[in-house]
């Protein structure tokens, strides 16, 4: 079963992806997932991310892939890059990231 032609659900996260917002973000992601197993999430507006946020992304990725789709992360903010780099997760998500010169 190949869902690649499915229109990806797009969403831009704004603000923080932390333990404080985890519950509401999860609901939003779950709603998107029920519509499509291919998601594209824009992280440019994320100004803070913690382990809870990282977990959400990983879990979404897992579920997307289980349903034959995939999760694509785009426009990572510096804060997100920083954390993915620290945890060595960039390759796990496998999305192209833009490394700023500074």
């Amino acid at each position: 079963m190949d869902n690649t032609d499915q229109v990806p659900g797009k969403w831009q996260v704004e603000g923080e992806m932390t333990i404080f917002t985890a519950a509401s973000i999860k609901e939003k992601l779950a709603a998107l997932l029920s519509a499509s197993s291919r998601l594209e999430i824009d992280l440019s507006g994320v100004n803070e991310i913690d382990t809870a946020g990282v977990q959400l992304l990983l879990a979404t990725k897992k579920e997307c892939q289980a349903k034959g789709g995939d999760l694509t992360l785009v426009h990572h903010s510096i804060q997100v890059l920083d954390v993915l780099d620290l945890c060595n997760l960039t390759t796990i998500f496998g999305d192209p990231v833009v490394i700023s010169s500074n």
Binding site: K26, A52, Q55, E63
Partner: peptide, 8 residues
Amino acid sequence: GLSEMDPE
């Protein structure tokens, strides 16, 4: 997976 996880 996302649907089964507890976000906190």
